[in-house]
């Protein structure tokens, strides 16, 4: 699979003329069928996310933000359309392959943190690494590095219920980072936090981005959307607008590069 993915990079790079593209969606649709009702969650989405880019996806409730994020994160597969991840087509992988790629290439940060209550901080962060069959010593090193990066290394033995919301989300970020993924996907990461903690998490993401992480974040809060390089606006399952904040920021504050 690793080889195919590499080959895919070359093919995608050749066909689209850019080696920097990490995520490429072409005409992605998603239809949910319930009884006799068809819901078109996504209707022909075209989206490129480059390596090292920080993209936010915004839009009103029910516009398809989370569905898009799920497809990007290989939690779900598109009904139609093409999807290349790091140059490899991934839209029609089987469950097992999707699990493997998700584990190695994607780091999730959820609105409600989704830490496992019965596992302590260390075990929660270690969890995705155990699915890779990584040796224990290496796991330990990665876990501690990740926790130090988010400033939670001093709480390794604590359980989620013993942490504040902000702390839980930092642990969730550490978990997402531990596997050194190609992209971090954050679904309303501040949705369950107060403004102070929300700001702290956003600052953490920005810091990670400055260090080179590729981030794709769903948010409906314009303040947080502006933290990203670029905001993609979704409405009724389509991308209706894109804003490049870098240019805007440069205009507002030329010292920011």
């Amino acid at each position: 699979m690793e080889t195919n993915l590499q080959t895919g990079v070359e093919q995608a790079g050749k066909s689209h003329g850019s080696g920097e593209v990490l995520i490429r969606l072409e005409g992605v649709t998603k239809v949910f069928y319930t009884d006799e009702v068809e819901t078109h969650a996504l209707a022909g989405v075209h989206l490129d996310i480059k390596k090292g880019e920080y993209v936010s996806i915004s839009g009103p409730s029910g516009c398809g933000k989370s569905t898009l994020l799920s497809i990007i994160g290989l939690l779900d597969s598109p009904t139609d359309g093409k999807y290349w991840l790091d140059g490899a087509p991934v839209e029609s992988l089987n469950l097992s392959e999707r699990s493997r790629i998700r584990n190695r290439e994607v780091g999730f940060i959820f609105q409600s943190f989704n830490l496992i209550g019965d596992l302590n901080v260390y075990e929660n962060v270690e969890l995705p690494l155990t699915y890779r069959g990584m040796p224990s010593a290496e796991r330990k090193q990665r876990v501690m590095e990740s926790l130090e990066r988010v400033g939670m290394a001093h709480r390794v033995r604590h359980y989620p219920s013993q942490l504040s919301g902000g702390q839980q989300q930092r642990v969730a970020v550490a978990r997402a980072l531990a596997g050194d993924p190609a992209i971090l996907l954050a679904d309303e990461p501040t949705g369950n936090l107060d403004s102070k903690n929300g700001e702290a998490v956003m600052e953490l993401l920005r810091e990670l981005h400055r260090e080179g992480a590729t981030i794709c974040m769903v948010t409906h809060d314009p303040r947080y959307a502006r933290h990203a390089d670029r905001t993609v606006h979704l409405f009724d399952g389509r991308i209706v607008d894109e804003q490049d904040h870098r240019a805007h920021d440069e205009e507002e504050n030329p010292s920011v590069s």
């Binding site: 469950l95 097992s96 699990s99 998700r102 584990n103 999730f108 496992i116 995705p128 699915y131 596997g179």
Partner: peptide, 16 residues
């Protein structure tokens, strides 16, 4: 179920 969902999102395979 929720926890299993999280685990699968983090890359757990069916056999895991």
């Amino acid at each position: 179920t929720h926890e299993i969902g999280i685990r699968m999102a983090l890359g757990a395979r069916r056999e895991d």
